[in-house]
Design a binder for these strands. Structure first.
Lengths: 201, 201
DNA sequence: CCACTTTCTTATCTTTTGTTAACGTTTCCT
DNA sequence: AGGAAACGTTAACAAAAGATAAGAAAGTGG
């Protein structure tokens, strides 16, 4: 895919949040970079500041922590979703999360520095503020559901919910990552699946 | 406490996010209401749209769901924190959460309607956008940690973290609410406390 | 001030989950 | 193509958590 197609996809997807006119888009897009991220490479790593927000044109990533030497996968992002270690990006402090490409990715990114420049530019400030607000709010809606699922649901119920509202995760992610995402071990998920699928035991 | 003191506290606390000048504050504050919420009364209920955002001047609330006839407490808010059923407020759809006063509360609120009016007012729009973005981003930072704790920590580790970074929750909330907040049952929390405190078993 | 509720602990039993290891299959890589 | 790594399931055992009930202590509200 060429750079122009990627930018056009981005602009189209952004209309969900904000509609830039031509003049605004020209300035806005000057702050964008197109990046490739090869499979298994890292978009973010613990101990490093994540100073970029990416938008995934092609590819998938997973977010994971390491605890007691073990990888624990907490989240995934797919095409047409934003990718960043949000807390690190917002605070400017080193993050705790690996964000790793599971496939070759094509990303459109801007840095925190670029964001500051845009917010300081009267031609863009208002729309970029709104853009930031809307993306943040959308993220909160997801988090609210996710926290509620840990509080009110059993692992089996969380799996069933994922099974029903399915989305890409079940189809595209290996099961041991999904287990972590649900807050359980791969062995436990395998047992839950047997219970659910066979109705036995 | 009189209305003016409450509004002054609010204005002072808001400086963390945004600093209104006099002219702006006059308009902004016209969109605010001062509400009392008596102990055990509800700020939000499942099935109803939560169309207000509150700022807690005095008091505490808890957020809870009902599952299989049982209350499950998911969160708390204290003085100088915002209170709303965020998803319901943002989407305009009925929420799933009870938000109940645990003490008599003094709240400063604005409605979604008022927010829309402020965002449509050129004198306020930019600062209110920024205000909304910053509050949303702060919320995300909290959620990121909270989700990570469910993914990477055992219930005992979550309790210990709460014990160390303590805050008001341990001091001011009954233990069975805290248990829910940690994603476990009250009986289980009692056992964890014994393990932790006595080092036994 | 007394009855009532709430809160917390403890005990017992059941269920679920974690841990470790083994095994077959698939995928990856060079 | 062939060896290595990754993946999913299953088993056996240990550890933890859930469910339920009982009882004591503390707090609440007439």
């Amino acid at each position: 895919m060429d750079a122009n197609s990627a930018l056009n996809i981005y602009r189209e997807q952004l209309k969900k949040y904000i509609d830039f006119n031509e003049a605004e888009w020209i300035i806005f897009s000057q702050h964008l970079s197109i990046n490739q991220l090869k499979k298994k490479h890292y978009f973010a790593e613990p101990g490093k500041v994540c100073d970029k927000v990416a938008f995934m044109i092609i590819g998938t990533v997973r977010y994971y922590h390491i605890k007691d030497g073990q990888e624990i996968t907490g989240y995934f992002s797919f095409e047409n979703e934003f990718v960043t270690s949000y807390k690190s990006f917002l605070t400017g402090l080193p993050g705790l999360t690996y964000i790793q490409a599971l496939e070759d990715c094509l990303l459109i990114t801007f840095t925190h520095r670029d964001l500051d420049q845009m917010l300081a530019n009267p031609m863009l400030a208002y729309k970029v503020e709104k853009f930031g607000r809307l993306v943040a709010e959308e993220t909160i809606v997801c988090y609210e559901d996710r926290v509620a699922s840990f509080i009110t649901q059993t692992p089996e119920e969380r799996y069933l919910q994922l099974y029903n509202t399915g989305k890409d995760i079940l189809r595209r992610m290996p099961q041991h990552y999904i287990a972590n995402y649900l807050g359980i071990t791969p062995v436990s998920l395998s047992r839950i699946r047997r219970r659910v699928l066979t109705g036995v035991k």
